[in-house]
Write a protein that binds this DNA or RNA. Structure first.
Lengths: 224, 224
DNA sequence: TCAATGCTTCGATGAAGGACGAACTATGCG
DNA sequence: CGCATAGTTCGTCCTTCATCGAAGCATTGA
């Protein structure tokens, strides 16, 4: 009989369809209220409330009360990474899927991963940044290169770490099996992309759709 | 209501304690038989068999039949990565350690790991055998040294491999984070320890309790 | 061919927990 | 205040599924 971190406890939290839907919905990065999550999960409000308590108790969610609204969000990037990893296995393992619709294709190209960009675009970006030595990567770790500060400052992104959260982190992609950039820098880049309206978010989905011009701009700045 | 990869299905597979233990055991990288996994999970053989079918059906395991042995292993690095991600969250989220009781302390010192000895004693033993070059270890693999046959023959252990099972294998310890000796040799040594009554097994536990004299004898033979 | 071992299937049991309606608390708004 | 909206708690029903013993296959060795 094994000991150690209670992995079954965490996994079983994700293992309920209603809770899994809630967590998936929260992968979009924005915090949601209990009613919204109930709707996402397709259960009644009391049921959702019960699930949310469990997720809170399990440490997977954070709660921000604002007046009579209670906003639930993912507890952190580590939790988001776990959901991505599970999603990846589920996607790889379920070959009995109907042919990938247009939404799936879009998801493969670019999607939101909690607070940063994921998908082929994001993987290509990280590759390029490493090739140009703006970022340095050894093994699983990613660090800022000497030219990083000036490079990102030129496009209006400050790479100074304000919080305890790391600036750079690698996050494994489920569609491609390679890493993309997470951390505060990854989040800042996604902000920039949406702020500049290079891309818009598909409603009720994690997909990120680049406009033709936005794609060009993105490629010029990050893949150039 | 969401669509997409069935993440709840995968997570719920990991969400059962017995299955979680099996998967954790398989994280070592070596494939194990159904009986071994039953022991690891602390369930009966039929129960284990049922769990294994489910894990197979879920695509998390691969199966290699060799005669009447059926070796189960993780389906791939992606699955391993997922387990690791879940373990990470579980470790970060649950620092609530139960106070280590006397049984836990004993488990840390010495315990049975399905057919061989694990724990601090076992780790020390392997270290010493390698230091004396009775065993040779490179990377993760352990082989017999030139003096191994005579050395073990002197204490009544035959190192000739009868079965297909390897004589030496490294097994990662959860208490200490280092390896101990598994394989037929590991099993033979545990047999010897119990046969000579150097130690007895705690009932209903994996703990192995050395008598004062037994400990001396063990240290003389294996740590001398 | 017979016995032993490794493993799976079957059937019955029992406990865990997910579901919702109703009632309760809390915030906001006139 | 009184009413409406957002959430939680409670109680109960009910499905699911983990568990084990016994029996059934399959492989190996004698």
């Amino acid at each position: 009989m094994r000991e150690g971190p209670d992995i079954a406890r965490i996994a079983s939290l994700v293992g309920d369809p209603a809770r899994a839907n809630m967590l998936t919905a929260l992968m979009g990065g924005t915090a949601l209220t209990a009613s919204e999550l109930a709707l996402e999960a397709g259960v009644s409000l009391p049921t959702a409330s019960s699930h949310l308590s469990k997720l809170m108790e399990g440490g997977l969610l954070t709660l921000a009360s604002q007046g009579r609204h209670r906003y639930y969000g993912l507890a952190g990037p580590q939790v988001a990474g776990m959901i991505e990893a599970i999603t990846g296995v589920a996607a790889a393992v379920g070959p009995q899927r109907v042919r990938p619709g247009p939404r799936d294709a879009a998801m493969r190209v670019a999607r939101v991963c909690y607070d940063h960009l994921a998908g082929e675009q994001a993987v290509a970006m990280l590759d390029r940044l490493v090739a140009r030595q703006v970022l340095l990567r050894d093994d699983k770790e990613i660090r800022l290169g000497p030219s990083a500060a000036s490079h990102f400052a030129a496009i209006g992104i400050d790479v100074v770490s304000k919080a305890r959260r790391p600036v750079c982190r690698a996050c494994l992609d489920w569609s491609v099996r390679r890493s993309h950039l997470a951390g505060t820098l990854g989040a800042a880049i996604l902000d920039k992309i949406l702020l500049e309206k290079w891309a818009r978010r598909e409603k009720d989905s994690r997909a990120v759709i680049f406009s033709p011009m936005g794609k060009q701009a993105f490629e010029k700045v990050f893949l150039g």
